[in-house]
């Protein structure tokens, strides 16, 4: 109990959104993006990006799990014995993911079916474990919460970019609304001979799109370029 009151007192001395704290949110959007720079959480980032809607739902799920997991682990970090910390973290995360899974099944059953095993796989999403290990185990709960939110925003942003291109070019729709016209009735763009790129719906194209995003990001941000092996 005493530790948590101390935390609150110290918090008061520093502004809640100081520059250092804001950096926790803005950094993962570009300089330390979890997917393109830290190479975390790629498994689920690619498999569910065929359409925009599941990607947004997945982003919200990860946001909840990472932010809450960071807070819980950060509050418990002095109690968890070092030797069993991985299992303790996994159990906390698995509990949170079960909550997400049940909420999805109750309110968004179709999306839950579409995401299938990938909701459960948030547990082993490396972003969750990576941030718990790298940040929450050594920081107080408020910075940990910001760090969790920042990293899931970086993750979600990438998810949404990939899904945007895949859904638009693959099926000519966005969020299920027709954008480019009807492919079978030959309206809109299709009337002048435009054809959907069926490749975009296939899993490998997600990898290529992420590769291209990395290329664009690194040519704009030279310090991220890797040294020749």
């Amino acid at each position: 109990m005493s530790t948590s009151t101390e935390t609150v007192k110290k918090e008061a001395s520093e502004p809640i959104f100081s520059k250092k704290r804001l950096k926790l949110i803005t950094d993962p959007l570009n300089d330390s993006n979890p997917v393109t720079v830290q190479v975390l959480g790629i498994c689920s980032a690619l498999a569910i990006t065929v359409q925009l809607k599941p990607s947004i739902i997945m982003f919200l799920g990860v946001l909840f799990v990472v932010a809450m997991g960071n807070v819980v682990v950060s509050l418990l970090r002095n109690i968890i014995p070092n030797r069993v910390r991985i299992i303790a973290q996994l159990v906390i995360v698995a509990g949170l993911v079960s909550v997400v899974d049940m909420v999805l099944k109750a309110y968004q059953y179709d999306i839950s079916k579409q995401l299938s095993v990938f909701v459960g796989l948030i547990i082993t999403n490396c972003i969750v474990m990576g941030r718990l290990e790298a940040f929450a185990m050594g920081n107080k709960w408020w910075p940990s919460l910001l760090d969790g939110i920042g990293n899931s925003l970086g993750y979600g942003g990438l998810l949404i970019i990939v899904a945007f291109f895949r859904e638009l070019l693959g099926s000519g729709k966005l969020l299920g609304f027709t954008i480019l016209g009807d492919a079978t009735a030959k309206t809109g763009l299709y009337s002048i001979g435009y054809v959907n790129n069926g490749f975009m719906v296939m899993p490998p194209m997600a990898l290529v799109i992420v590769g291209i995003i990395i290329w664009v990001q690194r040519s704009r941000n030279q310090k991220l370029i890797e040294a020749q092996e």
Binding site: V208, V210, G211, I214, R218
Partner: peptide, 13 residues
């Protein structure tokens, strides 16, 4: 800019 991670993604694709 493609070195390392980027080219690995495209290769995997």
């Amino acid at each position: 800019p493609l070195r390392g991670l980027g080219i690995t993604f495209i290769l995997t694709g």
